[in-house]
Design a protein around this nucleic acid. Sequence first.
DNA 1: CTGAAAGCGCTAACAA
DNA 2: TTGTTAGCGCTTTCAG
Lengths: 335, 335
Amino acid sequence: MDSVNLKKLSSILGLSVSTVSKALRDSYEISEETKERVKKIAKAYNYQPNIYASSLRKAKSKTIAVIVPRIANNFFISAIDGIQEVAQEKKYHVLIYLSHESYEYEKELVQSFASGRVDGMLISLTRETNDMEHLRQLVNNGIPVVFFDRVSTELDCSTVSTNDYESAFEATEHLIKAGCKKIAHCRISNKLSIGQHRLNGYRDALEKHNLDFHSKYVVKCSDNDVEDYKTIKTLLKDKDRPDGLFTAVESYTLIAYEVCRELGIKIPQDLKLITFSNLRTAGLLDPSLTTITQPAFEIGEKAAAELISAIEKPRYFKPENIILKSVLSPRDSTN
Amino acid sequence: MDSVNLKKLSSILGLSVSTVSKALRDSYEISEETKERVKKIAKAYNYQPNIYASSLRKAKSKTIAVIVPRIANNFFISAIDGIQEVAQEKKYHVLIYLSHESYEYEKELVQSFASGRVDGMLISLTRETNDMEHLRQLVNNGIPVVFFDRVSTELDCSTVSTNDYESAFEATEHLIKAGCKKIAHCRISNKLSIGQHRLNGYRDALEKHNLDFHSKYVVKCSDNDVEDYKTIKTLLKDKDRPDGLFTAVESYTLIAYEVCRELGIKIPQDLKLITFSNLRTAGLLDPSLTTITQPAFEIGEKAAAELISAIEKPRYFKPENIILKSVLSPRDSTN
DNA sequence: CTGAAAGCGCTAACAA
DNA sequence: TTGTTAGCGCTTTCAG
């Protein structure tokens, strides 16, 4: 019950291997008649080409890798959804890897791609990634890379991200206009592009509105819910606690909701909350949550489209830094 | 700047290709001294084996495929997370495909795996899948398959699922005990194992408690939010509308929340709600949502572990039907 | 302990 | 229009 290969097929057909191969790939060299006959038999025998043989031969695999820090995250999920959408359309296969925010593992993964396992790679960097050497090597090996969301512009690669600085600015201003005077920010690692941009937007909005920047109001959160819970609880237990909180990442806000319940802090009366988030249920929360939503699906689509262009038209491809816009949706948590 | 291959490496080392190959794979035939020398140089040149060549040769790729109906779904995400966890540990690569509930596409995908692109496959079936022939063929080709959640026991393959019948029974009983007399059920396709089990559990619980089964209270939902919205609205607008609703799938309940807001139906006073769900924010909703939560991550882990056993120990492997238990978490929506 | 050589299944020159 | 053949990079006999 083994699957047929070209050789068997050709002997069944009484043709040479190469003729069959060409016929199946619609070569102009083969007569219509033969093509038809070959395809019919191939179908009848359910012939499936061995992709390892053809990839080896062509040095192309129609496969791309996607590395994300984690998958249990609404943003990355939607991005992957978008990536899949265009990959499927363009007949690419998608290998998914989770770096779990480990630079070492990211490096190992990226290096393993150098030998051509994939035709290209999409990546959202870990919080720890400083050094781009592993990525540079991959690119030098002729394997295109496209960054999304957590990007680096150090390399000559396309990036797809959002207007984080502006959004953070807008979010902070939104809190100020809602009457907040003491606005805190839960930031994400400043090794990340998004960490810096979101922090800067926050700071500049404060400055514009003549509010002091207090370092005690800027807390660094991690990737660990338990730790973040402590961090946020400490922040909100302070006697001089903030009256507004802008968080760089959805999970921090969900933790803040829990902490507020526990401490009896009322949202939005005592504390107004806004966050970057792709939560589907933002509008159903108690109270409903004001969000800045990134166009995650489109980011994924764009990134995949860029990558596939880079793979298929290496001559004409020009790397670009694509910026998509996020949307602020005001809800009750800042009312 | 091309990546080195075995041949280059061996000429650098002044050894034969086969010696280098063996040394890198720690063959007992090679002296420790040589091994060390080889590995050192291999590392220095960042040698990465060409996976297509070795897969072709060994007819093994250390790659598995995962087919899920969709990815934007908390259950499947967690399951994939679990799959990744064990795949990574066992050094397997994971290709992800979305069937988008299309049987035709599922079939096409499965067939394409026959030639050995992957060493095994994990699948959660589409709502349309009736016929198992494509899967049977794959298995006959020597490529192991493991089902998870949306399973079929028609083939001699492992399955990993949850005690859906009992959970549905328990959920319905939970509503009855909360005082509901007219309990509706939003069901999912009864081509699916889970669709049948959840409906049966619902029906039997009604029967046990001497409540009539009304077909008008059982509505079939789809995969389309807009349609489901209409369906659920019709159900809840009825003058003889239900006072309890048990939905087979998370998204139906989120829609029900929205419909209730719109129609001014108060949860839980006017309508009590319970659903299968892996929503992280169930406890933060307004009102908090009573859920039956499937151990999605563990399902993924188990399924992947089964698959890898089937791949690596074909002789000793015995397919099993593994059932994990879901947990009912009572919250305000049924209070 | 090391090396030579065959061949996995396919593609693409080149020949016929 | 079809066929012959070399070879992609690796693993694995088998010989030395």
